[in-house]
């Protein structure tokens, strides 16, 4: 069974992302474990793909570092097996790697292997609802969650198509564009959350969140969780560029995680009951 739903049950969830294997396998293990110590409720583990069309420059660079250090799907699964964390794990990758894995074409072998090593769910940025039925079926067969991204441009029938297929949580894309840390929080977030108000899966907001204040504001606005990627990848990149000790980088990640988690908690305290839900 996926452990994702229970992670959202105990208050606002902090969902950090790192590209696995960035800048190398061993450091990456320490970094993910540091995020868990910092309070991660769910962890998104990026399996790098050579053509990451949804990513901004920060995560593109992380993907390059990881691939150059030799990351492959099999090593990714070994990494997940070796990882010593309690938080549920979500694999974020592109469809070609899922489709090509194993001896037979199609997503089932990848999902089976991921389930064996303890992956609870999947986010696939280049797989819209229309093309997702084979992966949804494989996730159902192995009791895994399939998380979908809802964009600021998603409306009407598209929302329904996603609502029918989503499980675990819905990834609310806070703004148009690619991933990347931003200095402010988009106004599009409030409108997106309002469109999803009556959905019965948790709503986690991502794309651009980089500080505790952002996390606070997003949760206060009604989000059930915050997803943070590039702001954490920036810490990894900075450590790599300055030859910092792995333990120092891990400490900075843990501290950043605490900041973001605390922000989310403050946001939950300010949350006023939604008029439509009372």
């Amino acid at each position: 069974m996926s452990r994702v739903p229970e992670a959202f049950a105990a208050g606002p969830a902090f969902v950090p992302y790192l590209a696995v294997g960035d800048p190398d396998y061993e450091s990456s293990l320490e970094y993910v474990e540091a995020l868990a110590r910092g309070g991660a409720d769910v962890i998104e583990l990026g399996l790098p793909f050579s053509e990451p069309v949804a990513e901004g420059p920060t995560i593109q660079s992380a993907v390059v570092r990881s691939l150059e250090a030799g990351m492959t799907p099999e090593r990714f699964f070994g990494f997940v097996e070796e990882l010593d964390v309690d938080a549920p794990l979500v694999c974020m990758t592109y469809y070609n790697l899922i489709y090509r894995f194993g001896d037979e074409r199609g997503p089932e072998p990848f999902v089976r292997r991921a389930a064996e090593v303890g992956i609870d769910g999947f986010v696939v940025p280049d797989l819209p609802a229309e093309e997702s039925d084979p992966l949804r079926a494989a996730c159902d067969a192995h009791d895994r969650d399939l998380i979908f991204i809802v964009a600021p441009t998603t409306r009407g029938e598209r929302l329904e198509r996603i609502m029918e297929r989503v499980s675990g949580y819905v990834y609310v894309q806070a703004r148009l564009g690619t991933t990347g840390a931003r200095a402010d929080v988009s106004d599009q977030t409030d409108a997106s959350l309002a469109r999803l108000a009556d959905w019965d899966v948790p709503k986690a907001v991502g794309f651009g969140i980089s500080t505790g204040e952002h996390a606070e504001r997003v949760v206060a606005a009604g989000a059930d969780g915050v997803i943070v990627g590039s702001a954490l990848v920036d810490i990894v990149a900075d450590g790599h560029e300055n030859d910092a000790a792995t333990s120092d980088v891990a400490a900075r990640l843990e501290e950043k995680a605490r900041e973001l988690k605390a922000g989310a908690r403050r946001g939950a305290e300010q949350r006023v009951p939604h008029p439509e839900r009372t």
Binding site: P125, D126, P128, E131, F148, V150, P152, T153, T154, Q173
Partner: peptide, 14 residues
Amino acid sequence: GGQYVPEALMPAIE
């Protein structure tokens, strides 16, 4: 064939 693109682009593609 098909339509394997980020959700943000799907409305434009439709």
